[in-house]
Design a protein around this nucleic acid. Structure first.
Length: 478
RNA sequence: GACCCCUUCGUCUAGUGGCCUAGGACAUCACCCUUUCACGGUGAAGACACGGGUUCGAGUCCCGUAGGGGUCACCA
C-alpha cells in the first residue's frame, strides 16, 4: 500500500476533500472542495473524496448524503469512489504497531483524570498546557495492572519542524512547543491525527489543500510522516471564510449548507464563481467560466488573509449568470419551483415561460425572484390584484382602461409593436402620458405595478387571455 | 495565556521597489435612458492599520506596536 518516495514524487497531482460527516456541506467546506478540485483539474491530476467518519457518535448517514448532494450540485465530482475512514482502522493500527516496534511510539498509561490534573496544574502555574511525557521514557514494567494504554508518538523534543506551505510560505515551530500526541486511544481506535496521515499517504495525496485551522496540525502530522519515513505532501493552508462581521462563520450568516443556497435560488455556476473569488484572484477577472478557472487556478494566486462572505456580491453575480442563462433551462428551473408550490406548469405554460424569459431574467437576481415574477403569466383568471395595482384601476385609470379595452378588442394585429403604437396614439388623443394608459394595463394584466414591458406581456399572454384579464379587472366587484 | 497566521476603499480584491496623484468588482449616492421595475450608460464618494527603519525611491523589504483570526483533547 505504501510507495517508495522516489516513485510518489513522480506521480500525478492528487488532491482530496476530507469532510467529517457531522452536518451539511457548509460554505467553507464547499470552497475547500472547489479549490482542491480546481487544483487537480488544472494540473491534470485526480480529485478524491474521503469521509472522515471515525467519530462514530457524531457522524451520520444523513450528513454523508448531504455532503454528496452538495458536491454534486456544485459539479465537483470526485475521480474515484469515496474512501470511508472508519473502514481503515485496521491499517491505522498496523502502522502504529510498526512505530511501537521501532521505538518511535510508546504506551502511555496516564488516566484521563490524571491528565486533567496535569493540565490544571500547568494552567495554575501559567505554563502552556501540553502532555509532559511522563510515560515517554518510563520502564514498561511500571505499567499499572489492568489499564489499557494509549499509544503516543515519541516526537522530537529539540530542533524545529518546518513546513513549506504553498499558500502560507515557510512556517516554523519549535519542537518544544509540540507534545507527544496520541495515535491510538486506549480502546485501540485511531485518532484523527494518525488517520489523516496514513490515509493521505495510502491514497498517494500529493497536495493537501485545507483550511488554515489545520495549520498547526500540519506540524504534528509532519512529525508523524518523518517517524514513518514517509515524505509529507505539499500543504496549502487556505484562510478561513468569515461572516459579515469578521467573526468565524456561524449559522446566523453564511454557514449554511450548499442546499440552502440552492433553495435561495442561486445557480451552481454562480456559486462556484463566487467561491473561487473568495480568497483567490486572477487579476481583475470577476466573472469567468469553469474552464477558465481551471486554466487559471493555482496556489500562488491564493491570498493569505481571511475573506468575508458577502451575500450582496453573490446575489449580484447570480443575477449576471441569470441574465446570460439559457432560456429553456431557466424556464425549466422556474417551472420546477412553481410546481413545488402547487402551480403545475403544462407544456404550453413551459413554452410561455421560455418565451417570457428574456423579459423576466433581467429583472431577477435569484431563481426565487424569477419564479415570483413569472408566476402571473401562468395564474388562472381572474387574477388577484395587489393593493397598488388595484389603485391603478380606480377612477380615472378605470375609465382609461375601459376605453383602451374597446380599442384593443378591435385591433386586427396582436403583436407588441402594433399594440404599443395603438396605445401610444390612444394616449395622445386622450391627452395622456403613456404611463397613464400603460400602468392600468399592467395592473390588470399582471396583478402588479411591476412587470416586464406591458406590450410584451400583452403579446405573450395572447389576445383572448389579455382581453379576459382586462375585462376581469373592470368587473365592478373586482 | 502560549504558539502560529493575517492586516489595500464598508466588502471581495489588483498590486511581487519606480508604470500608483493606488486599478477593478459589489454595495452606496447622483444623473442619463425609460410605459413600471429592472438592464444598460455616465459620474461621485471611498483604502495602503500605526510607528520606526532599509533604499535615490516603499502599498510593495525589515523591526516593533495595535487590531483580527486560528490552534492548543484518548473531537475531527
Amino acid at each position: 500500500m505504501s510507495f517508495p518516495v522516489r516513485f510518489r514524487k513522480k506521480m500525478t497531482v492528487t488532491t482530496r476533500f476530507a469532510p467529517s460527516p457531522t452536518g451539511f456541506l457548509h460554505i467553507g467546506g464547499a470552497r475547500t472542495a472547489l479549490f482542491n478540485w480546481l487544483f487537480a483539474r488544472h494540473h491534470g491530476g485526480r480529485f478524491l473524496l474521503r469521509i472522515e467518519d471515525t467519530d462514530r457518535q457524531r457522524s451520520t448517514p444523513e450528513a454523508v448524503a448531504a455532503i454528496f448532494d452538495g458536491l454534486s450540485w456544485l459539479g465537483l465530482e470526485a475521480d474515484a469512489e469515496p474512501v470511508f475512514q472508519s473502514a481503515r482502522a485496521a491499517r491505522h493500527a498496523e502502522v502504529v504497531a510498526d512505530l511501537l516496534a521501532q521505538g518511535r511510539a510508546y504506551r502511555c498509561y496516564a488516566s484521563a483524570e490524571e491528565l486533567a490534573e496535569m493540565r490544571a496544574a500547568q494552567r495554575a502555574a501559567g505554563q502552556p498546557q501540553r502532555y509532559d511525557g511522563r510515560w515517554r521514557d518510563r520502564d514498561p514494567a511500571e505499567a499499572p495492572q489492568g489499564v489499557a494504554p494509549a499509544i503516543r508518538l515519541k516526537a522530537p523534543q529539540e530542533g524545529e519542524t518546518v513546513i513549506e506551505d504553498a499558500v502560507q510560505g515557510r512556517v516554523t515551530v519549535a519542537n518544544s512547543q509540540l507534545d507527544d500526541m496520541v495515535l491510538l486511544r486506549s480502546d485501540g481506535s485511531p485518532t484523527y491525527m494518525l488517520s489523516v496521515v496514513v490515509d493521505d499517504h495510502d491514497m498517494a495525496i500529493s497536495h493537501v489543500i485545507r483550511g488554515d485551522d489545520h495549520l498547526t496540525n500540519a506540524f504534528r502530522q509532519t512529525q508523524l510522516y518523518r517517524a514513518l519515513g514517509w515524505e509529507p505532501p505539499v500543504f496549502g493552508h487556505i484562510p478561513l471564510i468569515h461572516g459579515p462581521d469578521g467573526a468565524k462563520l456561524s449559522k446566523r450568516h453564511g454557514a449554511l449548507g450548499a442546499e440552502a443556497y440552492r433553495d435561495m435560488g442561486f445557480l451552481p455556476e454562480a456559486m462556484r464563481n463566487y467561491l473561487a473569488r473568495l480568497g483567490w484572484a486572477h487579476g481583475d477577472d470577476e466573472m469567468f467560466t469553469t474552464e477558465q478557472a481551471i486554466q487559471w487556478f493555482d496556489l500562488p494566486g491564493v491570498g493569505r488573509s481571511p475573506a468575508r462572505f458577502d451575500m450582496a456580491k453573490l446575489t449580484d453575480l447570480n443575477a449576471k449568470y441569470l441574465r446570460q442563462g439559457d432560456d429553456a433551462r431557466l424556464a425549466g428551473l422556474v417551472a420546477e419551483r412553481l410546481a413545488g408550490e402547487g402551480l403545475t406548469v403544462d407544456d404550453p405554460g413551459r413554452a410561455l415561460l421560455e418565451a417570457a424569459m428574456p423579459g423576466l431574467k433581467t429583472r431577477a437576481r435569484t431563481l426565487v425572484e424569477l419564479a415570483d415574477s413569472a408566476r402571473f403569466y401562468l395564474l388562472p383568471r381572474p387574477l388577484a390584484l395587489d393593493d397598488k395595482a388595484a389603485r391603478q384601476i380606480e377612477g380615472e385609470g378605470r375609465e382609461t382602461l375601459a376605453a383602451l379595452l374597446s380599442r384593443l378588442t378591435d385591433t386586427p394585429t396582436w403583436e407588441r409593436e402594433a399594440l404599443e403604437a395603438l396605445t401610444r396614439s390612444f394616449a395622445e388623443e386622450q391627452g395622456l402620458k403613456l404611463g397613464k394608459a400603460a400602468q392600468p394595463l399592467r395592473a390588470a394584466l399582471s396583478g402588479s405595478t411591476v412587470s416586464p414591458p406591458v406590450f410584451e406581456v400583452l403579446e405573450l399572454l395572447g389576445r383572448a387571455e389579455s382581453l379576459g384579464r382586462l375585462a376581469d379587472a373592470l368587473e365592478p366587484s373586482a
